[in-house]
Design a protein around this nucleic acid. Structure first.
Lengths: 216, 216
DNA sequence: GCCGAACCGTACCGTACGGTTCCGTTGATT
DNA sequence: AATCAACGGAACCGTACGGTACGGTTCGGC
């Protein structure tokens, strides 16, 4: 086993992977290959050719192919940024606008080709290995977003703008209202309808319904 | 190209595939292999060994490996049954109970290991080939269920029990309230929480919220 | 100017698996 | 009894890909 193998399983979820610039370039190439052709298109030889690096370097950096895939997931997760929420509960309208912006950002991330490709990759591998990729995506992706959302919603509750018992439950409803079955349909290869591409009104609509269920 | 290759692309969506009993047994073995070990575990040699048939028969029946996978999806889709809806709008309580039963059945199907395995398979292949599997699963699975749900909801609207403009939109909300992000988490390999395994109360809860949004 | 580390490019190996072919058996039909 | 289609079993081939080894090149430090 190479000493420098990238072992994501033992690294702290909140620790930055700190890939070297050169490695980030290679990972970006890997991501492009993944988005274009799925997992089958990401071969070690193909990546080496595309990224103009040697297979030996790939194996030195990432250990093996699984380590490479894990690194791609970790790299992309580190790229995703959500808008900050400073002073977001100043008044009711501002808070609601902030929730809407959060939902729109969530839709933007989940429906992006990059995210879809990584989800497809992780799902396709979720019953092999010890399911490293699925866990990685959940921990670095979904759980982070979920935590962020919960603090946002609880802030709204503290200010008397929302009313619910369980923040996780409320977030799941918000998620369901926003995403519905669009995510799984996109994952299966269906194209989004024009209405579904209008993320702003989708978010608006979801938040409207959410307030009818949980508004104070 | 073998003459008997199973070409699902040209078959009518509502036409029964009509596999021979022997073929159904083999497809059931294939499904078991898929559920246990994912796509990688379903090799032609492995299936031939498990199902005690010859690879030659597999290729004669299904054409190639892709045809086999398509046949597995079609076979399983033909197995899924939803409760009938005769006299379901007799009165408000009966109709609501029927909607709840529908949601519970939906959850039961989507969260079953079999459905998850097939969704993982289709998603993993959704950016290769011409995406036959994804389309197949959408057409034979989701779209059928969606149509069924729309007629149910519209029946409720005709009887003055529900109020909405677009049945598809209403169904999507019902779907989102019921499934939330549980489906994607299961697809990624996370285990369902005890609460999420209680399909009855999950359905109850979703329908309750649905009525608060769309009840007349 | 020399040294070593990092790295590129490439050739190579082992293996797993999709697909093909051949042969022997069974079992229904005439 | 003869025939023939369907099938199981096994051997075989081609190839794609993961992983390794090695020679040649660049570049920063002394």
């Amino acid at each position: 086993m190479p000493a420098a193998a990238y072992d994501i399983a033992t690294s702290r979820p909140d620790a930055a992977p700190e890939f070297s610039p050169r490695q980030q370039v290679v990972l970006q190439h890997a991501l492009t290959l993944l988005v274009e052709g799925g997992e089958k298109a990401l071969t070690t030889a193909g990546l080496a050719r595309t990224a103009s690096c040697s297979k030996e370097s790939l194996y030195k950096w990432f250990g093996d192919r699984d380590g490479l895939l894990a690194a791609v997931v970790a790299y992309q997760a580190s790229q995703v940024q959500f808008p900050s929420e400073t002073g977001a509960t100043a008044d009711a309208a501002t808070f609601r606008a902030h929730v809407t912006a959060f939902v729109e950002a969530l839709l933007g991330v989940l429906f992006s080709e990059t995210s879809l490709a990584l989800n497809r990759l992780s799902i396709g591998q979720s019953n092999t290995n010890s399911n490293r990729l699925g866990h990685l995506l959940l921990v670095r992706g979904k759980h982070m977003i979920s935590a962020r959302a919960r603090t946002m919603l609880e802030s709204g509750r503290r200010h008397g703008l929302l009313k619910f018992d369980d923040a996780e439950d409320a977030y799941q409803v918000l998620y369901g209202l926003a995403i519905r079955d669009v995510h799984i349909r996109l994952l299966l290869g269906e194209n989004a309808s024009p209405a579904e591409k209008d993320l702003a009104s989708q978010a608006e609509n979801a938040v409207d319904r959410f307030y009818r269920l949980f508004g104070a």
